[in-house]
Amino acid sequence: MPNFNDQILNHNGLLFLACILLYTLPVTVVSQEPPPELQRLTTDGKDKQRPAWSPDGRTLVFARHEPEGAYGASIWLYLIDPKNPNGLKRLTDRELPEYHATFAPDGAQMLMVTVSQSGTQGNLDIARLDKVGGKPETVVGDQNGKLSHQDWPAWAPDGKQFAFSSTHDGNQEIYRCNLNGADVTRLTQSPGHDAHPCYTPNGTRILFSTDRWGGLELASMAVDGTDLTRLTQSPGLDDFPAVSPDGKRIAFVSNRDGNSEVYVCDLDGGQPVNLSRNSARDTQPTWTPDGTGITFVSDRQGGTDLYTIKVQ
């Protein structure tokens, strides 16, 4: 099966031009040069969510808010080749909202969140997409006829399962299931809020955020939901954990200094380091596949855009 990069780079030139014309937006004036270690990946300034890299590092997927979608404002998924930032391309031709996409470990498929019917207050499903421009296939929807939302899919390293958050059983918990949506297993048991799961690269543990100890903190557990371990303990929220490709470090968001920043710490403990160090809002980090950088959402230059900061 061809991967997403092949599909992006080999498509018809005319279609490519049309996509550029349709989806490239006015470039926001950059007020100041970013620091040397920082690469700005987008410039349109529109609100964005959850960047995620293809395994080969050639393509970035992210969600962007659109004020004038066919059903009103919307959120759509886009692909971008960082070497050709003007080549922004819609991932699908859906008109209903879609977001929080992530590449499979082999780059051949994606998981994403789709709104299956607008105006339903929370009918979010997780869908699988096999090719650019294809039709996402819902793999996890409502369970037992009860409206619920599914969010933030995270692939297991073997590509056979994924974790996600859902309100199937009332409050929001972390679940895991097979790629076809079978064998949905609840992993967390807390009356509070559990969110944003991610696997460690060796596939043995799942990190997530939880409010079971007060404010949002990071925790990890075995993939069967056992061996819960608290990872952070700080005033303010800690959220959006992302484990480095070598499995040694965690990037996450914290407002422990009063502002939303991207921090990095060792997976086995240690003092978190503020990596983004900016008065703007920095959030939703993801590692570059080679582990040398962290891509995140920031409004440090006015509008909301994507940046990659180098990591030592």
Binding site: S118, Q121, G122, T167, L237, S260
Partner: peptide, 30 residues
């Protein structure tokens, strides 16, 4: 203009019956 968010055919109002905490953190709060 609308009470609902873009996930729900609106334009980002405060009527968050679902996924409230993520949306508050991602948008409305800051």
């Amino acid at each position: 203009t609308h009470v609902e968010g873009p996930e729900d055919a609106g334009d980002g109002g405060w009527d968050m019956h679902d996924n409230y905490f993520s949306i508050m953190q991602d948008r409305h709060g800051w």
